[in-house]
Every structure is written in structure tokens, then in C-alpha cells.
Design a protein around this nucleic acid. Structure first.
Lengths: 153, 153
DNA sequence: TCGTTCATGTCAGCATTTTGACATGCCCGC
DNA sequence: GCGGGCATGTCAAAATGCTGACATGAACGA
């Protein structure tokens, strides 16, 4: 059953802007821009927000954990963590009780700041979801997961 | 190890790593990494490849055009263009015949280099597509397009 | 016990990208 | 004509991210 897509049978690559990779990039760029715009009003960057959100769900994550989860290097993650610490939004023990990992946790102020921006960020995500047929959202999630998984190996 | 996840069974929707935004980021990061790895063997970066591909389809695009199409600033686009020009893969007129825009075009060597890497890059994209149910690919494309469109405005 | 291996945190240097600014050249309404 | 408005190219400086390197601490097997 290949009849549903007959437009270009012979030419495999016509318009790059309609390839999966390009659209993935475009959607991600648009999301990044929308989040940046919203977060700037609250004095946070996207990496900072992501870190706060992760720490809220998993208190005690180390710098290396957070770096992996946010898709940056440990070095970049460290910079973000220092910024958040200077802003008083997180705390890290000065000495590691086990290994070298220093578990990070949200401060009261960190939790408050996160709660403030969550509404705005979630509104952005809702705009995304509302733009899609409701019954396709779940499929999109599994598809994106499969793409990531197959390319990560 | 990063053993940081024995906490309470939170609701699936509460886990950020299953949100659309996070999966979009993860898929894009994985794609970027896979393309980087493949292109490095041919001495090209992802922005350079993207620019070559766009110029192959649309000869004469200006720096500003390319910057918009690759989701970077004009300044960054200019750096990429200079690199490609130094490598002898593209040419740009030293003076603009109309306005300030200087249309870029692939050289013979540029076309050859592009043809060489296209197979490798397309193989990556094929791995993505093969990881998905065939009948969902078209839906994924339209969904990504809708996400990008709604967030770009 | 000891040595190897691995993960982590951190420093330094480099590359890339962005922000901000400015000059130049078209278009379009007046 | 001609002026404002806009898009483009480019420079300089700052921000951001990465690679390479090193030291420390834990886990594991000989």
C-alpha cells in the first residue's frame, strides 16, 4: 500500500524543508524561541528553567546527571548550576558525602520561582498540543521517542 | 552511577521527559549528534552541510536567506559562508549587482562534496524513518509543521 | 591489599553563536 | 524628487558551549 503518497516517486529528495530532519530542527527552534521569550520576562534562561524543573522532580541530581538530562556537557551544566546557585535558587553541599557528586536541591526561592514560570511555560506547550489533532499527540510522543532512541545508539 | 530515581510513582504526564517539548529536544539533539558524527568524517559541519544542501536546491540565495533557513543569525550565517568560500565549495560575487545581497552558488567542487556526503546523511534520515510505523511518517511531518507554525507567530 | 577502571568535578583554551551597532542600498508613499 | 521605513552585510564585544586535560573518589577483580 504505497498509493497514499505518489507525488514524487522517482526523486527521493526534492524540498529539504519538508524532510523529517529539517522539520524537527524548525519545530525545536520555534519552541526554543517561544520559551526564551517567555522565560526572559522572568529572568531565566531555557537551560536554567530545564534544570529547575528536573530538580523539582528529582531532588539531589548531580551536575553530571543534569548535564546528561539537558543534553549539554558537564562543563556547561556546571555554569548553569553556578548561576542558579548565585541567584539563590538552588543549594549544593560544599563537600560530597559519597563520591564526588554534589547533589543539588531547590531552595524555597527556587521552588517559588519555578512555580511562577511554570504557568507561562506550560501555556506554550499547550499551544503546541492544541495545534495538533488530539488523538495524534500520543503517537507523536512515541514517534519522537523512537527517533531519539534509534539515533542515540 | 547516577542512581537518582527511586522516588514516588508520579503520574506519567508529570514526568518532564515525556513532554512534547522535552522529546522534541531529545530527538533533535540525537539527530544533531548523528549528523555531526557522519559529517565530521567528510570535513563538514552541520551548518555547512545545511547551507550546501539549500544552495543546491536554490542557487543564488543570499546570506540573510540562508540564515533564516538554517535558524541562525545573519552573523553566524556569514561565518559559515566564509568557511565554505575559503574551502572553495561556494562562490559569491564581490559586489552586489542589485541591493546589498550577494547571491551564493555552489562550485563544481561544492557540488561534488555535497554529492559525496548526501548518501551518508540520507542514511541517517532513513534510520529515523525506518524506526517509525510507515503510515505515521506523513502525519509526523504535518504535526511538526503545525508545531513550528503555531510557535513561530 | 592493591591496581585498574570508571565517573565526577573542575580548570583552561578554543570555537561557535549571539547581541548590539552601524553603513549601505532598495522600495514606496508623499 | 525625496524622505522614512526596511532589508542586507559587516564589525566588535559578549555570551555560550565544547574539547582537552587533570585530580579525586568509588567500585571491582586479581
Amino acid at each position: 500500500m504505497n498509493e497514499s503518497v505518489p507525488p514524487e516517486p522517482s526523486h527521493p529528495a526534492d524540498d529539504i524543508t519538508h524532510h523529517v530532519g529539517y522539520l524537527l530542527k524548525r519545530a525545536q527552534a520555534a519552541l526554543r524561541g517561544a520559551m526564551d521569550k517567555v522565560l526572559r520576562e522572568h529572568g531565566l534562561t531555557v537551560p536554567q528553567y530545564s534544570t529547575l524543573e528536573l530538580l523539582a522532580q528529582h531532588p539531589g541530581m548531580s551536575n553530571a546527571d543534569l548535564a546528561r538530562a539537558t543534553f549539554v556537557t558537564r562543563q556547561s551544566g556546571n555554569v548553569v548550576l553556578r548561576g542558579l546557585q548565585e541567584a539563590g535558587l538552588i543549594t549544593r553541599p560544599t563537600t560530597a558525602d559519597h563520591g564526588r557528586a554534589r547533589p543539588a536541591r531547590l531552595t524555597e526561592e527556587g521552588q517559588a520561582r519555578l512555580a511562577t514560570v511554570q504557568a507561562a511555560v506550560h501555556a506554550v506547550e499547550q499551544r503546541m498540543i492544541d495545534a495538533l489533532p488530539a488523538r495524534r499527540v500520543a503517537a507523536l510522543l512515541t514517534d519522537l521517542d523512537r527517533i531519539a532512541t534509534v539515533l542515540e545508539e
